[in-house]
Design a binder for these strands. Sequence first.
DNA 1: TGCAATAGATAGTCTGGCTATATAAACTGG
DNA 2: CCAGTTTATATAGCCAGACTATCTATTGCA
Lengths: 153, 153
Amino acid sequence: MTRPQDLHTLLGDLVQANSRLVRIAAQATGTTESAATWRTLGVLQQAGPLRIGELATLSRVAQPTMTKIVAGLAERGWVVRIPDQSDARAWQIDVSPEGAAAVDAWRGELASALHPYFADLTADEFDALRRTVRLLQERVELNAPDRTKEMSH
Amino acid sequence: MTRPQDLHTLLGDLVQANSRLVRIAAQATGTTESAATWRTLGVLQQAGPLRIGELATLSRVAQPTMTKIVAGLAERGWVVRIPDQSDARAWQIDVSPEGAAAVDAWRGELASALHPYFADLTADEFDALRRTVRLLQERVELNAPDRTKEMSH
DNA sequence: TGCAATAGATAGTCTGGCTATATAAACTGG
DNA sequence: CCAGTTTATATAGCCAGACTATCTATTGCA
């Protein structure tokens, strides 16, 4: 039923539309915080305390990138770094109450900024949007990426 | 019909899901090119030859940012810079055939990378996705952003 | 005990954002 | 017709977030 040709076009269009949406939001909110911040906090909220490495894998960034992001978040007080009881090399990273509040605040700003663009949705359109967001969420669930390539050394 | 509370949540979820989707695509394709590249070329393909400033406004980035992006694209031969007949300060920027080919190639890679995640959509889900992408495209159309703030000096 | 494997940090590079400012061309008013 | 303002782009300098390569410190096993 899903025609590959259409899917091909659709996915490109989806990513491009989203890139524009993100720029609109960035300019409208004037927030300095970037996608990486909210992506990382989102993963943590969803998957509880995690090690840097696990967090990097689930967020699909390289480990040194995650080390930097976490350093920034820790500076803002949005995550806490708890020494891992069972491994002195490792940390458990978790969202702080302040971090959770920051996510909420950002969602509020984002909604205000984008509301004018979506205020006039029909019930039908709203429903399609809602279903698609759920769909996307399912598909980008936090499954560990395929590491076959790396494993083959 | 559209409940603000739901819309609030929905938009946050949409942006977050998309941020993950973009990371999945980035890792799966292994492409080094970033969102800004395809966003910019997309705007050009849609709105024909444009000046740097117009391009920046429509892409919703600052003018110096666009100068840099265009410099990069010109190096790769993906855009051409045509001197503006009527104004020696300005350039007309347009997509080159190579640029258009690069966009096509990227869409292909993206589709291949994401296809496994979307291969099993039902006709119904596919339809909701298709309608939502169209919807998003309408909403992020290339309308010049509101410049009221800047104009008030 | 001693050495390979693992977790994270550090170094260095690039792109893409930003603001502030410089440069150069184009207007405009006396 | 030229002086001053406005406008279009470029330059400089900053920062975050992405990468690879490598270092350090612990772990864990032979």
